[in-house]
Design a protein around this nucleic acid. Structure first.
Length: 328
DNA sequence: CAGAATGATTAATC
DNA sequence: GATTAATCATTCTG
């Protein structure tokens, strides 16, 4: 193509036009650029960066709306104000950039067509040539737009993982909550799997959610099992506490009669679910003082809930080697 | 500040 | 779907 006489201002854009391809990451892999563009569009739409119907280009907009699985079922919006603030920042930047590009594209197109028209006085310029030029310009600008969309998507993804990942802003439970949870755990040490109702009760008492209760018990079981020695002090404290505080701390309506568990004594590692038993077991337990990391308690526990997943085998052969976390 | 403690997530398993 | 085990990321503590 012949380069029209351009003002220095336009040289940069002309330069862009002559570039073979602007490096656009990850586009080559998945089909034609149109596909990629549609995906980007739909993602931006899903994240609320794009508004539906804003010069939607028909097909793309339609595809976007269907490709969105429920439009990101964002749960508790209260916590995400920070996220939203940042997102709207991104949105602003995106739109202002997009507008700039579109405006520049427009200006450049008219500029070039004007120049070509001027040139038509000197040499024959077919309408087709102008059309072609316009097409090329639009193509280049849309690939720039693609880049913009791509980086916007990336920014949003980063933001999501930064701010929407609960791990990043966890905070420890209140003392009340840990108290309640630990009380339940140690008073049900033989079977520390609270029912759904029990979980709800604990959640209510502790001012946390049911899934937090589940998380807590999951963590507690695994950590207790891994290093019982470490938890023995805690265990004695809570067992004593429940024994003193409320001699009948049972799950809601789980059992009217006192004896704990169906006492199929084999199933429970610790025969200490009744208040009395708790105290006595506690005392014996304290006097036993097993070797750090394992010992009396441990060997008892191995027959119970901790072996749940390895039913058939006789579990660990060597009682001494509790160094399962040596690799960590 | 390093390491422990801790709540949440994830992949695998049943 | 619940649980385990491993892991991540943050908060607490000495």
């Amino acid at each position: 193509m012949t380069k029209p006489m351009l003002s220095p201002f336009c040289d940069y854009f002309w330069f862009l036009l002559t570039l073979p391809v602007l490096s656009i990451r990850g586009i080559q892999e998945e089909g034609p650029p149109d596909d990629q563009l549609m995906r980007l569009d739909s993602m931006l739409l899903a994240e609320g960066v794009c508004r539906l119907g804003k010069r939607g280009r028909g097909a793309a907009a339609a595809a976007a709306s269907t490709a969105t699985p429920g439009g990101c079922p964002n749960d508790n919006g209260l916590e995400h104000s920070d996220y939203r603030a940042k997102l709207s920042q991104i949105r602003q930047i995106y739109h202002s950039e997009l507008e700039k590009y579109e405006q520049a594209c427009q200006e450049f197109t008219t500029h070039v067509t004007n120049l070509l028209r001027e040139q038509s006085r000197i040499r024959p310029v077919l309408p087709k040539e102008i059309e072609h030029m316009v097409g090329v310009i639009h193509g280049k600008f849309s690939s720039i737009q693609m880049q913009l969309k791509q980086s916007t998507c990336e920014a949003v993804m980063t933001l999501r993982s930064r701010l929407l990942d609960a791990r990043r802003k966890r905070q420890n439970f209140s003392k009340q909550a840990t108290e309640v949870l630990n009380e339940y755990f140690y008073s049900h040490l033989s079977n520390p799997y609270p029912s759904e109702e029990a979980k709800e009760e604990l959640a209510r008492k502790g001012g946390i959610t049911v899934s937090q209760v589940s998380n807590w018990f999951g963590n507690k079981r695994i950590r207790y099992k891994k290093n019982m020695g470490k938890f023995q002090e805690e265990a004695t404290i809570y067992i004593a506490k429940t024994a003193v505080d409320s001699p009948e701390v049972r799950g809601p309506g789980s059992q009217a009669s006192c004896p704990s568990m169906p006492s199929s004594s084999a199933s429970g590692p610790f025969p200490l679910t009744s208040s009395r038993g708790a105290l006595t077991a506690l005392q014996t337990l304290a006097s036993l003082r097993p070797a750090p990391g394992g010992g009396g308690l441990l060997s008892q526990a191995r027959g119970g809930w901790q072996g749940k997943r390895r039913s058939t085998t006789s579990l660990v052969g060597d009682a001494g080697s509790v160094t399962s976390d040596a690799s960590n």
